[in-house]
């Protein structure tokens, strides 16, 4: 059932920019249109590009913010999220706690 929702109406997660828009809903309580516009501005693309794999996959690779087809040694997980936090100008709790462990 969730798979049908994802295919029928979802933004595509890390295949495209769905995770980035979700972060803005979570971090700034942004409604959908505002979150999409914010992310598009930060990425330097049009809103319609946010769900276009042809645009987003190479862009995510270039920016090092994680893709759905990771390569060994490439950015994924907490490293990718750290870059997402910087890109979007938000605090991600897991990233903050992870970084704090280096300070001890």
């Amino acid at each position: 059932m969730p798979i049908t929702h994802i295919v029928a109406a979802g933004m595509g997660g890390i295949r495209t920019a769905g995770d980035l828009v979700a972060w803005m809903q979570m971090a700034r309580r942004m409604k959908l249109a505002d979150a999409k516009a914010y992310v598009a501005d930060k990425l330097g693309v049009d809103v319609v590009d946010l769900v276009d794999e042809d645009v987003m996959h190479p862009l995510r690779k270039e920016m090092g913010i994680g893709t759905a087809t990771p390569m060994a040694g490439g950015p994924e997980g907490i490293l990718a999220k750290s870059r997402v936090a910087d890109l979007l100008g938000i605090e991600i709790n897991s990233v903050k706690r992870f970084k704090s462990r280096f300070e001890k």
């Binding site: 295919v7 979802g10 979700a22 959908l32």
Partner: peptide
């Protein structure tokens, strides 16, 4: 059988 939204109208799916 399966329908979907047009380009540009996608939303966020949480679970």
């Amino acid at each position: 059988r399966v329908v979907s939204v047009p380009h540009g109208h996608e939303l966020i799916v949480t679970d």
